[in-house]
Design a protein around this nucleic acid. Structure first.
Lengths: 127, 127
DNA sequence: ACAAGACTTAGAGCTAACTTTAAGTCAATC
DNA sequence: GATTGACTTAAAGTTAGCTCTAAGTCTTGT
């Protein structure tokens, strides 16, 4: 399948601006063009894009993602290094989940406290 | 207890620059000063700072945090609204945790795939 | 074949959240 | 009491990641 930039944009919720920007920055290498120079994206590109947004969502910076993509370009001799990067990222995500859990508890705790204050306040005849 | 900006910075891992910046932006109102104009922070300030970083960590923007702080300034008649904001944020955090979980699975899946490729590659006599 | 509208490029502009600078004031030690 | 170093201010600078503009090219429907 071939997709236009618009189709990709709609499927992925990444704006066409950003798709071009990612390409310019080296995150999406070898995007094919029609004879008139119009981009078209393959399923492989879509797949990479999926990984990119996943890495981005988990806090990896574009420049690190670029490094990862460049390793991918170099073929199987970089597989070990790519695994290491993914393992590192897996670890990061675990830490983020723990952090988020702590924050959740803090917000909940504060909310419980305010709720109590609120019911007390309302109980005094101040609606 | 009274803390200098340096002590607060060390305790919270928020730089003195940022503490002053937050104050300027209205996130930390009523910071006391010594006669010479030097800031000192109270335990109450520390508490607010804890809530601020928690809200920030969970993706709330400074301008929204400022709104929350301003409501706090207005006394108990804004308690209900503050509870609503916290409940909303609690919800946001739940969504973030679900998202993060999905990303974790995606990274793990990709890693498993690459690991398999790697062991195959190494099995062929390419160390 | 031609108008409308999507696409192309390079590069400028924007936003959030810091981060630093410059010029000066204050506090603690020698 | 002088020096050192942390503090003060307003304002400029930085970074990441977009987001848009301008000027031009291509594609598609009538």
């Amino acid at each position: 399948m071939r997709y236009t930039i618009r189709e990709v944009s709609e499927k992925t919720n990444i704006s066409a601006y950003v798709l071009r920007f990612y390409e310019k920055e080296g995150l999406l290498p070898h995007i094919h063009r029609s004879e008139g120079g119009i981009r078209y994206y393959t399923d492989e590109d879509m797949d990479l894009l999926g990984l990119i947004s996943c890495l981005k969502k988990t806090g990896m910076q574009l420049r690190e993602i670029k490094t990862f993509v460049e390793l991918s370009e170099q073929g199987p001799e970089t597989l070990r290094e790519r695994c290491n990067i993914l393992r590192q990222q897996q670890d990061n995500v675990r830490k983020q989940m723990a952090e988020l859990q702590k924050s959740y508890e803090k917000v909940s705790h504060k909310l419980a406290y305010f709720s109590r204050l609120l019911s007390e306040y309302e109980g005094t005849g101040n609606p």
